[in-house]
Design a protein around this nucleic acid. Structure first.
Length: 278
DNA sequence: TTCCAGGCGTATC
DNA sequence: GATACGCATGGA
Protein backbone atom coordinates (compact mmCIF):
# COMPACT_ATOMS: atom_id res chain seq x y z
CA UNK A 1 0.00 0.00 0.00
CA UNK A 2 1.47 3.25 -1.16
CA UNK A 3 -0.47 6.49 -1.25
CA UNK A 4 -0.27 10.24 -1.47
CA UNK A 5 -2.67 13.08 -0.89
CA UNK A 6 -4.11 14.39 -4.13
CA UNK A 7 -6.27 17.51 -3.91
CA UNK A 8 -9.15 16.57 -1.61
CA UNK A 9 -8.56 12.89 -2.09
CA UNK A 10 -6.07 10.08 -1.94
CA UNK A 11 -4.03 8.65 -4.75
CA UNK A 12 -3.39 4.99 -4.08
CA UNK A 13 -0.96 2.62 -5.70
CA UNK A 14 -2.18 -0.88 -4.99
CA UNK A 15 -1.31 -4.22 -6.56
CA UNK A 16 -3.84 -7.03 -6.94
CA UNK A 17 -6.79 -4.66 -7.02
CA UNK A 18 -9.43 -4.24 -9.71
CA UNK A 19 -12.57 -2.20 -9.16
CA UNK A 20 -14.90 -4.33 -11.29
CA UNK A 21 -13.62 -7.56 -9.85
CA UNK A 22 -13.80 -6.41 -6.23
CA UNK A 23 -16.89 -4.22 -6.20
CA UNK A 24 -19.03 -6.19 -8.62
CA UNK A 25 -18.40 -9.82 -7.70
CA UNK A 26 -21.36 -10.50 -5.44
CA UNK A 27 -19.81 -9.67 -2.07
CA UNK A 28 -21.06 -6.08 -1.70
CA UNK A 29 -24.22 -4.59 -3.14
CA UNK A 30 -23.92 -0.84 -2.60
CA UNK A 31 -21.46 0.01 -5.37
CA UNK A 32 -22.62 1.37 -8.70
CA UNK A 33 -20.46 1.74 -11.74
CA UNK A 34 -20.72 5.19 -13.28
CA UNK A 35 -20.68 5.98 -16.99
CA UNK A 36 -17.07 7.16 -16.70
CA UNK A 37 -15.97 3.83 -15.20
CA UNK A 38 -15.61 5.06 -11.64
CA UNK A 39 -17.53 3.46 -8.75
CA UNK A 40 -19.77 5.27 -6.32
CA UNK A 41 -20.72 3.54 -3.16
CA UNK A 42 -21.03 3.56 0.55
CA UNK A 43 -20.17 1.50 3.57
CA UNK A 44 -21.14 2.29 7.14
CA UNK A 45 -22.61 5.54 5.89
CA UNK A 46 -19.39 6.83 4.47
CA UNK A 47 -19.70 7.44 0.78
CA UNK A 48 -16.88 7.18 -1.68
CA UNK A 49 -16.16 7.63 -5.33
CA UNK A 50 -13.17 5.69 -6.54
CA UNK A 51 -11.66 5.56 -10.00
CA UNK A 52 -8.69 4.14 -11.83
CA UNK A 53 -6.12 6.72 -12.80
CA UNK A 54 -3.20 5.36 -14.73
CA UNK A 55 -1.82 2.53 -12.66
CA UNK A 56 -3.22 4.09 -9.48
CA UNK A 57 -6.61 4.60 -7.86
CA UNK A 58 -8.08 7.94 -6.92
CA UNK A 59 -10.32 8.05 -3.85
CA UNK A 60 -12.15 11.32 -4.32
CA UNK A 61 -13.01 13.65 -1.44
CA UNK A 62 -11.36 11.43 1.11
CA UNK A 63 -9.35 12.79 4.01
CA UNK A 64 -6.13 10.99 4.87
CA UNK A 65 -7.50 10.13 8.29
CA UNK A 66 -10.62 8.59 6.75
CA UNK A 67 -8.52 6.62 4.33
CA UNK A 68 -6.21 5.26 7.01
CA UNK A 69 -8.85 4.59 9.63
CA UNK A 70 -11.57 3.22 7.39
CA UNK A 71 -11.11 2.64 3.66
CA UNK A 72 -7.69 1.00 3.87
CA UNK A 73 -9.24 -1.56 6.18
CA UNK A 74 -12.43 -1.88 4.11
CA UNK A 75 -10.44 -2.72 0.99
CA UNK A 76 -8.20 -5.04 3.03
CA UNK A 77 -5.11 -3.22 1.83
CA UNK A 78 -2.88 -4.72 4.50
CA UNK A 79 -3.31 -8.23 3.11
CA UNK A 80 -0.89 -9.29 0.38
CA UNK A 81 -3.09 -11.00 -2.20
CA UNK A 82 -0.01 -11.64 -4.33
CA UNK A 83 1.24 -14.06 -1.70
CA UNK A 84 -2.16 -15.75 -1.51
CA UNK A 85 -2.37 -16.15 -5.28
CA UNK A 86 1.11 -17.60 -5.35
CA UNK A 87 0.07 -20.15 -2.76
CA UNK A 88 -3.08 -21.04 -4.74
CA UNK A 89 -1.11 -21.40 -7.98
CA UNK A 90 -0.21 -25.02 -7.24
CA UNK A 91 -3.83 -25.88 -7.95
CA UNK A 92 -4.67 -25.80 -11.64
CA UNK A 93 -8.21 -24.48 -11.32
CA UNK A 94 -7.39 -21.88 -8.69
CA UNK A 95 -4.50 -20.75 -10.81
CA UNK A 96 -6.88 -20.24 -13.73
CA UNK A 97 -9.37 -18.44 -11.48
CA UNK A 98 -6.77 -16.05 -10.12
CA UNK A 99 -5.46 -15.44 -13.63
CA UNK A 100 -8.97 -14.68 -14.81
CA UNK A 101 -9.69 -12.14 -12.05
CA UNK A 102 -6.52 -11.37 -10.14
CA UNK A 103 -7.87 -8.11 -8.79
CA UNK A 104 -10.41 -9.53 -6.38
CA UNK A 105 -10.03 -8.47 -2.77
CA UNK A 106 -12.23 -9.60 0.08
CA UNK A 107 -13.88 -6.50 1.47
CA UNK A 108 -14.09 -6.09 5.23
CA UNK A 109 -17.70 -5.07 5.51
CA UNK A 110 -19.78 -4.13 8.49
CA UNK A 111 -21.47 -7.13 10.10
CA UNK A 112 -24.91 -5.55 10.23
CA UNK A 113 -24.79 -4.43 6.61
CA UNK A 114 -23.64 -7.90 5.59
CA UNK A 115 -26.44 -9.48 7.60
CA UNK A 116 -29.11 -7.36 5.90
CA UNK A 117 -27.52 -7.80 2.48
CA UNK A 118 -27.40 -11.57 2.64
CA UNK A 119 -30.83 -11.93 4.23
CA UNK A 120 -31.98 -10.15 1.06
CA UNK A 121 -29.85 -12.45 -1.09
CA UNK A 122 -31.81 -15.63 -0.57
CA UNK A 123 -33.49 -16.97 -3.71
CA UNK A 124 -32.65 -13.72 -5.46
CA UNK A 125 -30.57 -12.27 -8.28
CA UNK A 126 -27.57 -10.03 -7.63
CA UNK A 127 -28.95 -7.03 -9.59
CA UNK A 128 -32.19 -7.26 -7.66
CA UNK A 129 -30.42 -7.50 -4.29
CA UNK A 130 -28.73 -4.21 -5.15
CA UNK A 131 -32.09 -2.65 -5.98
CA UNK A 132 -33.65 -3.78 -2.72
CA UNK A 133 -30.77 -2.40 -0.65
CA UNK A 134 -30.85 0.87 -2.56
CA UNK A 135 -34.60 1.20 -1.89
CA UNK A 136 -34.09 0.32 1.79
CA UNK A 137 -31.47 3.06 2.10
CA UNK A 138 -33.67 5.51 0.18
CA UNK A 139 -36.47 4.85 2.67
CA UNK A 140 -34.29 6.03 5.58
CA UNK A 141 -31.90 8.36 3.80
CA UNK A 142 -29.03 6.11 4.85
CA UNK A 143 -28.36 2.47 5.62
CA UNK A 144 -30.72 1.96 8.55
CA UNK A 145 -29.56 0.67 11.91
CA UNK A 146 -31.18 -2.35 13.50
CA UNK A 147 -33.01 -0.07 15.95
CA UNK A 148 -34.41 2.10 13.17
CA UNK A 149 -35.80 -0.94 11.40
CA UNK A 150 -36.98 -2.72 14.53
CA UNK A 151 -39.59 -0.09 15.44
CA UNK A 152 -41.29 -0.20 12.05
CA UNK A 153 -44.10 -2.45 10.87
CA UNK A 154 -43.88 -4.81 7.91
CA UNK A 155 -46.05 -2.48 5.81
CA UNK A 156 -43.51 0.29 6.14
CA UNK A 157 -41.08 -1.70 4.00
CA UNK A 158 -43.45 -2.24 1.08
CA UNK A 159 -41.49 0.19 -1.12
CA UNK A 160 -38.40 -2.00 -0.74
CA UNK A 161 -40.25 -4.83 -2.56
CA UNK A 162 -38.36 -7.45 -0.62
CA UNK A 163 -41.24 -9.93 -0.73
CA UNK A 164 -41.14 -12.68 1.86
CA UNK A 165 -37.76 -11.42 3.06
CA UNK A 166 -39.30 -8.41 4.82
CA UNK A 167 -40.25 -10.47 7.88
CA UNK A 168 -36.70 -11.84 7.99
CA UNK A 169 -35.31 -8.31 7.88
CA UNK A 170 -37.55 -7.37 10.80
CA UNK A 171 -36.59 -10.43 12.80
CA UNK A 172 -32.90 -9.72 12.26
CA UNK A 173 -33.35 -6.08 13.26
CA UNK A 174 -35.34 -6.90 16.37
CA UNK A 175 -32.92 -9.55 17.57
CA UNK A 176 -29.92 -7.31 17.03
CA UNK A 177 -31.66 -4.27 18.50
CA UNK A 178 -32.67 -6.03 21.70
CA UNK A 179 -29.34 -7.79 22.08
CA UNK A 180 -30.55 -11.35 21.49
CA UNK A 181 -27.96 -11.47 18.70
CA UNK A 182 -24.78 -9.46 19.28
CA UNK A 183 -22.51 -9.18 16.25
CA UNK A 184 -19.63 -7.86 18.37
CA UNK A 185 -19.77 -10.90 20.60
CA UNK A 186 -20.12 -13.33 17.70
CA UNK A 187 -16.74 -12.16 16.40
CA UNK A 188 -15.12 -13.94 19.32
CA UNK A 189 -16.93 -17.28 18.98
CA UNK A 190 -15.84 -20.41 17.15
CA UNK A 191 -17.26 -20.81 13.67
CA UNK A 192 -19.66 -23.45 14.87
CA UNK A 193 -20.98 -21.30 17.73
CA UNK A 194 -21.07 -18.16 15.62
CA UNK A 195 -23.11 -19.88 12.94
CA UNK A 196 -25.60 -21.12 15.52
CA UNK A 197 -25.95 -17.62 16.99
CA UNK A 198 -26.70 -16.10 13.61
CA UNK A 199 -29.11 -18.87 12.70
CA UNK A 200 -31.40 -17.86 15.54
CA UNK A 201 -32.61 -15.22 13.11
CA UNK A 202 -35.50 -16.21 10.87
CA UNK A 203 -34.30 -16.29 7.30
CA UNK A 204 -30.70 -16.97 8.28
CA UNK A 205 -29.65 -20.50 7.40
CA UNK A 206 -26.19 -21.98 6.85
CA UNK A 207 -25.47 -20.07 3.65
CA UNK A 208 -26.50 -16.62 4.90
CA UNK A 209 -24.75 -17.20 8.23
CA UNK A 210 -21.54 -18.09 6.43
CA UNK A 211 -21.78 -15.00 4.23
CA UNK A 212 -22.13 -12.81 7.32
CA UNK A 213 -19.12 -14.54 8.88
CA UNK A 214 -17.01 -14.20 5.74
CA UNK A 215 -18.00 -10.78 4.44
CA UNK A 216 -19.09 -9.06 7.64
CA UNK A 217 -16.62 -10.56 10.13
CA UNK A 218 -13.75 -11.56 7.87
CA UNK A 219 -13.78 -15.17 8.97
CA UNK A 220 -11.84 -16.22 5.89
CA UNK A 221 -11.88 -19.93 6.70
CA UNK A 222 -15.59 -20.10 5.83
CA UNK A 223 -16.92 -21.20 2.44
CA UNK A 224 -20.53 -20.08 1.83
CA UNK A 225 -22.16 -22.90 -0.13
CA UNK A 226 -24.58 -21.43 -2.62
CA UNK A 227 -25.71 -22.95 -5.91
CA UNK A 228 -22.56 -21.66 -7.64
CA UNK A 229 -20.13 -23.05 -5.11
CA UNK A 230 -21.96 -26.39 -5.22
CA UNK A 231 -21.23 -26.41 -8.94
CA UNK A 232 -17.59 -25.53 -8.22
CA UNK A 233 -17.30 -28.47 -5.80
CA UNK A 234 -19.03 -30.90 -8.15
CA UNK A 235 -17.08 -29.83 -11.21
CA UNK A 236 -13.61 -29.23 -9.79
CA UNK A 237 -13.30 -30.38 -6.18
CA UNK A 238 -15.35 -33.53 -5.56
CA UNK A 239 -12.90 -34.44 -2.78
CA UNK A 240 -12.90 -31.01 -1.14
CA UNK A 241 -10.88 -27.82 -1.37
CA UNK A 242 -7.13 -28.24 -2.01
CA UNK A 243 -4.70 -27.94 0.90
CA UNK A 244 -3.19 -24.73 -0.48
CA UNK A 245 -6.35 -22.89 0.57
CA UNK A 246 -6.08 -23.98 4.21
CA UNK A 247 -7.18 -21.17 6.49
CA UNK A 248 -8.17 -18.83 3.67
CA UNK A 249 -10.84 -20.94 1.98
CA UNK A 250 -13.23 -18.01 1.85
CA UNK A 251 -10.84 -15.95 -0.22
CA UNK A 252 -10.20 -18.84 -2.61
CA UNK A 253 -13.95 -19.23 -2.77
CA UNK A 254 -14.31 -15.66 -4.02
CA UNK A 255 -12.01 -16.28 -6.99
CA UNK A 256 -13.79 -19.55 -7.79
CA UNK A 257 -17.27 -18.06 -7.45
CA UNK A 258 -16.38 -15.34 -9.92
CA UNK A 259 -14.65 -17.79 -12.24
CA UNK A 260 -17.41 -20.36 -12.54
CA UNK A 261 -19.96 -17.67 -13.30
CA UNK A 262 -17.70 -16.55 -16.10
CA UNK A 263 -17.27 -20.13 -17.31
CA UNK A 264 -21.00 -20.61 -17.50
CA UNK A 265 -21.64 -17.36 -19.32
CA UNK A 266 -19.03 -18.34 -21.87
CA UNK A 267 -20.19 -21.96 -21.85
CA UNK A 268 -16.64 -23.10 -21.29
CA UNK A 269 -18.13 -26.34 -20.08
CA UNK A 270 -21.67 -27.60 -20.07
CA UNK A 271 -22.04 -28.73 -16.49
CA UNK A 272 -25.82 -28.91 -16.77
CA UNK A 273 -25.60 -32.27 -18.54
CA UNK A 274 -23.09 -33.75 -16.14
CA UNK A 275 -23.59 -32.22 -12.72
CA UNK A 276 -26.50 -32.57 -10.35
CA UNK A 277 -27.24 -29.00 -9.35
CA UNK A 278 -28.33 -29.78 -5.83
C1' DT B 1 -43.44 -16.43 -21.83
C1' DT B 2 -41.07 -19.29 -18.70
C1' DC B 3 -37.33 -20.15 -15.78
C1' DC B 4 -34.81 -19.32 -11.85
C1' DA B 5 -32.10 -16.58 -8.56
C1' DG B 6 -25.24 -16.03 -3.67
C1' DG B 7 -31.98 -20.25 0.51
C1' DC B 8 -34.82 -21.00 4.05
C1' DG B 9 -39.07 -22.42 6.83
C1' DT B 10 -42.15 -25.95 7.31
C1' DA B 11 -44.27 -30.40 6.85
C1' DT B 12 -43.54 -35.11 6.43
C1' DC B 13 -41.28 -39.38 6.67
C1' DG C 1 -31.33 -36.53 8.65
C1' DA C 2 -33.19 -36.19 4.45
C1' DT C 3 -36.36 -34.81 1.04
C1' DA C 4 -40.22 -31.97 -1.06
C1' DC C 5 -42.46 -27.82 -1.62
C1' DG C 6 -43.87 -22.94 -1.33
C1' DC C 7 -42.32 -18.42 -1.35
C1' DA C 8 -42.50 -12.49 -3.51
C1' DT C 9 -40.41 -10.44 -7.06
C1' DG C 10 -38.43 -9.39 -11.34
C1' DG C 11 -34.08 -10.03 -14.47
C1' DA C 12 -32.93 -12.46 -18.50
Amino acid sequence: MEYAREGNGILLRQADFDLDETLDCGQAFRWEKQADGSYSGAAMNRSLQIRKRGDCFLLENTAEEDFLSFWADYFDLKTDYGVLKQRYAVDETLYAATRYAGGIRLLRQDAWEALVSFVFSQNNHIPRIKGMIARLCALFGHFPTAKEIAVQSEDFFAPVRAGFRTKYLLDAARKVADGAVQPDRIQELSIHEARAELMQIKGVGPKVADCVLLYGMHRVEVIPMDVWMKRVMAEWYPDGFPDCTMGTEGIAQQYLFHYIRHCQSRQVFSYKETIPLA
